[in-house]
């Protein structure tokens, strides 16, 4: 149970931190930058860039389907939880499908054939500078933690101290991301 909670919290933190980052930074420019410095990671960046918006859109679409099938009329917290639970499986299936779709689309457009032209990019705007700075700081913190405090484990155990630390750090990351995202005007 605890293990599941920790794994879920990690995943949720990663998704929310990515979403907060992309509220500040233009996803197309982020992807272009990734293609430039780490071409093989551009797919990961593209998937991350689309994850939060497409998850939100798919969740909305699925919720609409529930309403159109007459299952959205129930009221109350239990009904909300039941409906939310019902969406999890199709939502996961949909995001996996979209993962395949975007990688297929990139390759079908010729990505990965080795000849990628770099477009001249305009300088980063202030909100993007903040986003990238937060990202770099987060990366450095993660590296320090991985090297010194909590080495990476493929199958981590639910150690109480590490778990509490992970929750605190996740909360801090999330808090900083949300404050940063909220305090700056997002790009149109």
């Amino acid at each position: 149970m605890l293990y599941g909670l920790v794994a879920g919290a990690r995943l949720a933190t990663a998704i929310l931190a990515t979403a907060a980052f992309l509220r500040l930074a233009d996803p197309d420019r982020t992807q272009a930058l990734a293609s430039r410095v780490a071409p093989r990671s551009a797919l990961t960046v593209a998937l991350s860039a689309r994850l939060a918006p497409t998850l939100r859109r798919d969740a909305n679409g699925l919720r609409e389907t529930l309403r159109l099938r007459g299952t959205g009329a129930e009221r109350g917290q239990r009904a909300a939880i039941r409906q939310g639970t019902r969406l999890i499986e199709p939502l996961v299936a949909s995001s996996l499908e979209r993962g395949i779709d975007i990688s297929e689309a990139m390759v079908a457009r010729g990505y990965g054939a080795g000849r990628l032209t770099r477009l001249p990019e305009v300088p980063l705007q202030r909100n993007e500078q903040v986003a990238f700075l937060c990202g770099v700081v987060g990366l450095l913190v993660a590296v320090v933690l991985l090297v010194g405090v909590a080495p990476y484990e493929i199958y981590p155990l639910a150690d109480p101290i590490a778990t509490s630390t992970a929750f605190v750090l996740a909360g801090l990351t999330l808090g900083v991301s949300i404050v940063a995202a909220g305090s700056l005007r997002t790009r149109p």
Binding site: D28, R98, I102, A105, R109, G110, T117, R118, L119
Partner: peptide, 29 residues
């Protein structure tokens, strides 16, 4: 067409195809 999109904005999305084909940078947009 939903599955075809890679970028978030139309001009960038079409430009992405040209970038992948190695078109000269100054002509892409």
């Amino acid at each position: 067409p939903e599955t075809q999109v890679v970028m978030a904005e139309p001009l960038r999305d079409v430009a992405f195809s040209l970038q992948c084909h190695g078109a000269p940078a100054e002509t892409i947009l």
